[in-house]
Deep mutational scan, measured.
Amino acid sequence: RPRTAFTQNQIEVLENVFRVNCYPGIDIREDLAQKLNLEEDRIQIWFQNRRAKLKR
């Protein structure tokens, strides 16, 4: 699968959610997927990668 290119707006929304909860449940991820026009699994991976970035 090709790399997902997130828009600046999508990143802002994801970062705002991350600040509140870095482990969002499936319900939050599915809601975000619908709002941001992305697949839920892409959102899940984004949070996984963002948590890894935080640990660095």
Rank of each mutant, 00 (worst) to 15 (best):
R1E: 14
P2Y: 15
P2W: 11
P2F: 15
P2I: 15
P2C: 12
P2N: 15
P2D: 15
P2S: 15
R3W: 03
R3L: 12
R3N: 09
R3D: 13
T4E: 15
T4C: 15
T4A: 09
T4W: 05
T4D: 08
T4I: 12
A5Y: 15
A5T: 15
F6R: 03
F6C: 03
F6G: 01
F6S: 01
T7K: 08
T7S: 13
T7G: 06
Q8F: 05
Q8T: 08
N9I: 13
N9M: 15
N9T: 10
N9K: 09
N9S: 12
N9P: 07
Q10N: 04
Q10M: 12
Q10F: 00
Q10V: 07
Q10W: 01
Q10D: 07
Q10A: 08
Q10E: 07
I11G: 00
I11K: 08
I11N: 13
I11L: 08
I11E: 14
E12C: 07
E12I: 03
E12M: 04
E12A: 08
E12R: 06
V13G: 04
V13I: 15
V13W: 04
V13H: 12
V13L: 04
L14D: 02
L14C: 13
L14S: 02
L14Q: 00
L14Y: 02
L14P: 02
E15G: 03
E15T: 02
E15D: 03
N16V: 02
N16L: 04
N16D: 11
N16T: 10
N16H: 02
N16K: 11
N16M: 08
N16I: 00
N16Q: 11
V17Y: 07
V17T: 09
V17F: 04
V17L: 07
V17S: 07
V17D: 01
V17K: 04
V17P: 02
V17N: 00
F18P: 02
R19A: 07
R19W: 03
R19G: 05
V20E: 10
V20S: 13
N21S: 05
N21D: 06
N21I: 04
N21F: 01
C22E: 14
C22I: 13
C22V: 06
C22L: 10
C22Y: 12
Y23W: 11
P24Y: 06
P24V: 01
P24Q: 07
P24R: 00
P24C: 00
P24N: 02
P24L: 06
G25V: 00
I26Q: 12
I26R: 12
I26M: 06
I26D: 07
D27Q: 14
D27E: 13
I28E: 09
I28L: 08
I28H: 07
I28P: 02
I28M: 03
I28Q: 09
R29S: 02
R29N: 01
R29Y: 07
E30H: 14
E30N: 15
E30S: 08
E30I: 13
E30F: 12
E30W: 12
D31A: 10
D31E: 11
D31I: 14
L32G: 00
L32P: 01
L32V: 03
L32S: 01
L32F: 02
L32M: 02
A33G: 08
A33P: 00
Q34A: 06
Q34H: 10
Q34T: 12
Q34C: 06
Q34M: 12
Q34D: 08
K35M: 06
K35I: 05
K35E: 12
K35F: 03
K35C: 04
K35S: 05
K35A: 09
K35T: 13
K35H: 03
L36C: 05
L36P: 03
L36A: 00
N37F: 08
N37G: 13
N37H: 07
N37K: 11
L38Y: 02
L38I: 13
L38K: 03
L38C: 14
L38E: 04
L38R: 01
L38V: 13
L38W: 01
L38P: 04
E39C: 10
E39Q: 09
E39R: 07
E39K: 05
E39G: 09
E39H: 06
E39P: 07
E39Y: 03
E40H: 07
E40R: 09
E40C: 06
E40N: 03
D41C: 10
D41P: 11
D41H: 11
D41F: 10
D41A: 13
R42I: 13
R42N: 12
R42V: 13
R42M: 12
R42G: 06
R42K: 14
I43Y: 01
I43S: 00
I43P: 00
I43M: 04
I43E: 00
I43Q: 01
Q44E: 04
Q44S: 10
Q44Y: 04
Q44F: 06
Q44W: 07
Q44A: 13
I45A: 14
I45L: 11
I45T: 13
I45G: 11
W46I: 03
W46F: 04
W46T: 02
W46H: 04
W46Y: 15
F47D: 04
F47H: 05
F47S: 02
F47L: 01
F47V: 01
F47I: 05
F47W: 00
Q48W: 01
Q48L: 04
Q48R: 13
N49P: 03
N49D: 12
R50L: 01
R50T: 08
R50P: 00
R51S: 05
R51G: 03
R51C: 06
R51K: 04
R51M: 10
A52L: 05
K53H: 06
K53W: 06
K53T: 10
K53S: 12
K53E: 14
K53R: 13
L54E: 14
L54C: 11
L54T: 11
L54Y: 08
L54M: 08
K55H: 07
K55F: 06
K55N: 11
K55P: 11
K55L: 04
R56Q: 15
